[in-house]
Simulated assay, not measured.
Amino acid sequence: MLRNPHQVITRYRIIEKVWDYDFMGESNIIKVYIRALRIKLEASNAKDLVPTVRGVGYVLREQK
């Protein structure tokens, strides 16, 4: 996401690039890691930087 800010990254692409894994199916692993990332960002007063694009994936926004 850092390499492509403001670009929606699909869940499949995240699995493929982060874990180098050809995943066929449903998993909540992405949700778990995105939630952990959000918690860490909120701890440093950076909120709403990684919103969900419903049905597609996630995007990295600039801090307001």
Rank of each mutant, 00 (worst) to 15 (best):
M1N: 08
M1I: 11
L2Q: 07
L2W: 06
L2E: 09
L2M: 03
L2I: 13
L2N: 12
L2H: 04
L2V: 05
R3H: 03
N4V: 12
N4P: 00
P5A: 09
P5S: 06
H6M: 14
H6G: 01
Q7A: 03
Q7H: 07
I9A: 01
I9E: 00
I9P: 01
I9N: 00
I9V: 14
T10P: 05
T10C: 01
R11E: 03
R11C: 03
Y12E: 08
R13H: 06
R13A: 03
I14T: 03
I14C: 08
I14W: 10
I14G: 03
I14Y: 04
I15S: 04
E16V: 02
K17L: 09
K17C: 01
V18W: 07
W19A: 11
W19T: 00
W19E: 04
W19G: 01
D20E: 10
D20H: 12
Y21P: 00
Y21M: 14
Y21D: 09
Y21A: 05
Y21C: 09
D22G: 01
D22H: 13
D22L: 02
F23E: 06
F23C: 03
M24H: 07
G25D: 04
G25M: 08
G25F: 08
G25C: 06
E26M: 06
E26R: 14
S27M: 10
S27G: 12
S27E: 02
N28T: 13
N28G: 08
I29Q: 13
I29R: 15
I29H: 06
I30E: 04
I30Q: 02
I30F: 02
K31M: 01
V32G: 01
V32M: 11
I34Q: 00
I34N: 05
I34G: 05
R35T: 12
R35M: 07
A36R: 15
A36C: 04
A36L: 08
R38T: 15
R38M: 08
I39C: 07
I39K: 13
K40W: 02
L41N: 01
E42L: 04
E42S: 11
E42T: 01
A43Y: 07
A43Q: 13
A43C: 01
A43M: 10
S44T: 11
S44G: 00
S44D: 07
N45Q: 11
N45V: 02
N45S: 12
A46R: 15
A46S: 13
A46P: 00
K47H: 13
K47I: 08
D48C: 06
D48F: 12
D48L: 10
D48G: 15
V50G: 01
V50C: 14
V50F: 03
V50P: 04
V50L: 15
P51Q: 10
P51F: 15
P51H: 12
P51I: 06
P51T: 10
T52M: 09
V53G: 01
V53Q: 07
V53N: 02
R54V: 09
G55K: 05
G55F: 05
G55N: 09
G55V: 04
V56H: 12
G57R: 08
G57W: 04
G57Q: 09
G57V: 08
G57A: 04
G57K: 14
G57P: 14
G57T: 11
G57E: 07
G57N: 11
Y58V: 13
V59P: 02
V59S: 02
V59I: 15
V59L: 09
V59H: 02
L60R: 15
R61W: 10
E62I: 06
E62L: 10
Q63L: 12
Q63A: 10
K64I: 09
K64H: 13
